[in-house]
């Protein structure tokens, strides 16, 4: 087996190259864009683990980022910044483990709407806790500088991409794909479906927890409705579907494309940006369910196959 196949090398190199080049442009604007881009890549790669490989589509992935951010502000001042972010990631993973067992029993489309409901539920619980505490938004002063956050987020994006590449090679990845294709058949050939699903779910929550903490550090404040905004879940799904969720390339392609689009539209026409996103999701689900990466694949297969093959 080659060290890395093309489809594994492309996303890894792309992330590394972007991370190396952006600081050379010497402006905080590019660092800021890069920070967001890497955040989305890490989120979309994590989503891919449970939703792309195992086929359990989550419409509520924001919940893990929200938890990460919330734990960071709760521990702010009590523990060092990075320990707080790490605790945020662990809390998100732990939450996934706890809710995973009952939630992952729910199949197919019902799982999908359940994840959305779960994220909204968590949002309103946190809103009520904050209200009860009399806190309406929490400010965080003296977080790490942008450049540090940039490199931290780049590392998360790379880690997420590497994780997807690695998992696809492992027995875990083969089992998750089998679960996606036919869960009963997977169980019958010996895939420990319950354990694998739970593990994948927890794994796909860790990085988002970390990303959520970094988002809070960057904006300097925490507000539950924003930290748990369902639009974040929606954007993750759209990125992964537009890019293609079958392997590690898709999330990178999708995030690049959507972040570019967002830079173009978001500041002046935020609603137009969301409308385009919605239309993209509908269009890709209907006409190109394997995303941009899938379109490449088809083109290559057509070029490689002899006529009629």
């Amino acid at each position: 087996m080659r060290l890395l196949t093309t489809r594994e090398a492309v996303p890894l190199l792309l992330v590394a190259a972007i991370a190396a080049v952006l600081p050379l442009l010497g402006s905080d604007y590019y660092l800021g864009v890069g920070f967001i881009l890497f955040g989305w890549i890490a989120l979309a790669q994590s989503w891919t683990v449970v939703s792309g490989l195992a086929g359990y589509i989550s419409l509520g992935h924001v919940v893990f980022a929200g938890i990460g951010g919330y734990v960071l502000v709760l521990t702010w001042g009590a523990v060092p910044v990075w320990a707080g972010a790490l605790l945020g990631a662990l809390a998100a993973g732990l939450f996934a483990l706890l809710v995973g067992l009952p939630v992952l029993r729910v199949r197919g489309p019902y799982f999908v709407i359940l994840t959305f409901g779960l994220a909204e539920f968590a949002k309103y619980v946190v809103i009520n806790i904050e209200n009860a505490l009399g806190r309406f938004g929490r400010l965080i002063l003296g977080g790490p500088p942008l450049e540090t956050l940039y490199w931290a987020m780049a590392a998360l994006a790379l880690a997420g991409t590497l994780a997807v590449v690695a998992i696809r090679r492992l027995r875990l990845g083969a089992g998750l794909v089998a679960i996606r294709e036919d869960e009963l058949a997977a169980d019958t050939i010996g895939v420990p479906t319950v354990r694998f699903k739970l593990f994948a779910f927890a794994l796909s929550a860790l990085l988002p927890g970390f990303v959520g903490a970094l988002f809070v550090l960057r904006t300097g404040y925490f507000e539950p409705a924003q930290a748990f905004d369902p639009v974040i879940s929606f954007t993750i799904v759209t990125m992964a579907i537009v890019g293609g969720s079958a392997d590690a390339r898709g999330p990178v392609f999708g995030a690049l494309f959507l972040v570019a689009l967002s830079e173009l539209l978001w500041s002046n026409f935020p609603q137009v940006y969301m409308i385009v996103l919605g239309a993209l999701l509908v269009g890709f689900v209907l006409f190109a369910p394997n995303g941009v990466a899938g379109l490449f694949e088809r083109r290559r297969a057509a070029a490689a196959a002899p006529a009629g093959g």
């Binding site: 083969a174 089998a178 294709e181 036919d182 009963l184 058949a185 997977a186």
Partner: peptide, 14 residues
């Protein structure tokens, strides 16, 4: 109940 999206080889390898 084959793993429809996978190749025959991948079905067996899984």
């Amino acid at each position: 109940r084959p793993f429809r999206g996978l190749s025959v080889q991948e079905n067996v390898e899984t």
